[in-house]
Design a protein around this nucleic acid. Structure first.
Lengths: 170, 170
DNA sequence: CAACATACGGAACGCACGCCCCGGTTGGCA
DNA sequence: TGCCAACCGGGGCGTGCGTTCCGTATGTTG
């Protein structure tokens, strides 16, 4: 690989990282290219599609998060800690809320991780048993999106967490 | 107004009602026109913008819902009943989840209604005090959207309702 | 029945986006 | 240093959408 090619690839990654974090997946690719100081064509030389670029940018953080989900003695706490971590990430960077939605292997791994944590937490009786992985994913997707619309992220998270474990008061 | 104009206006409303209910606000306006058997231009003769058409279609149901939110002795139950009604509507018709998001006076009234119900429920001590109207709206928006992605609407609603009133277990 | 305003349809416009192509340039190897 | 392959930039294509324009058709009125 030529030196300038490697340099440009890096510039694209840096620009994409910043803009995806600021504006999420919906940021126009031309804007990323402009911020990187290259043409759109150059972006596509290094990444076959916009989603591939997104995956390249989020891979490190999402993988780290998935890796951090090691089971402990308290399965309920494990799940809640993971959801909290996702909420924290999503509060700081807008791209986390898209990582759970944009199609990619990464997203599938994330869903699988959530499913595993949920299952163990349910077996331990820490969360209500009638929730499916799909439900949890949809719930989180909605919550993460809501966090970027002026709502208080901490409050939203608490509502979801308490809702997961308890049934309604009579 | 000419007779055929009135007829076409009605055909557009019927088609829009069905398609907005099926696919939400995102349905292309040309599709509505095609289903109504008219050209796109005709739609715009009767409704200045797509949002105006959407408002015309959802006005009756949303207004009815707002009107049904009369305070009773139990402010908490009032709020929960209203949220349940919204969830039911959103489960059946896809346009309810957009009525809370698409800019219009209707949406603002809806938000105001939610704010009023929330305030009274909080005064009554039925829901946690640290939730703002913005939080509630964002939460509902996320939940309603999630309902159209394969999740179980009833479970989602229960999670939100129980989350609203209780704090997390220690 | 004539004549005119009113309304129609759908082609066309403007915009934004993801993605591709090509003439020119540049880096690295012989 | 000279040459070639690799790479660059950005203009351009295709698509989909909301919206507008205008020649034509049609309902209404005297």
């Amino acid at each position: 690989m030529r030196a300038d090619a490697a340099r440009n690839r890096e510039k694209v990654l840096v620009a994409a990282r910043e803009l995806f974090a600021e504006q999420g997946f919906d940021v126009p690719l031309d804007e990323i290219a402009a911020k990187a100081g290259v043409g759109p064509g150059t972006v596509y030389r290094h990444f076959p599609t916009k989603q591939a670029l997104f995956q390249a940018v989020t891979e490190a953080r999402v993988s780290a998060m998935i890796a951090s989900a090691e089971p402990s003695a308290d399965a309920g706490a494990d799940l809640f800690a993971f959801l909290g971590k996702m909420a924290d990430e999503a509060t700081a960077k807008r791209d986390m809320s898209d990582a759970i939605a944009v199609p990619s292997e990464l997203r599938d791994s994330l869903h699988a991780t959530l499913g595993g944590l949920l299952g163990r937490a349910q077996e331990a009786g820490a969360v209500r048993a009638d929730i499916t992985t799909k439900d949890l994913v949809a719930l989180m997707k909605g919550m993460l999106q809501s966090m970027h619309e002026g709502a208080n992220p901490a409050v939203l998270l608490e509502i979801v967490l308490s809702g997961l474990q308890s049934s309604r008061k009579p």
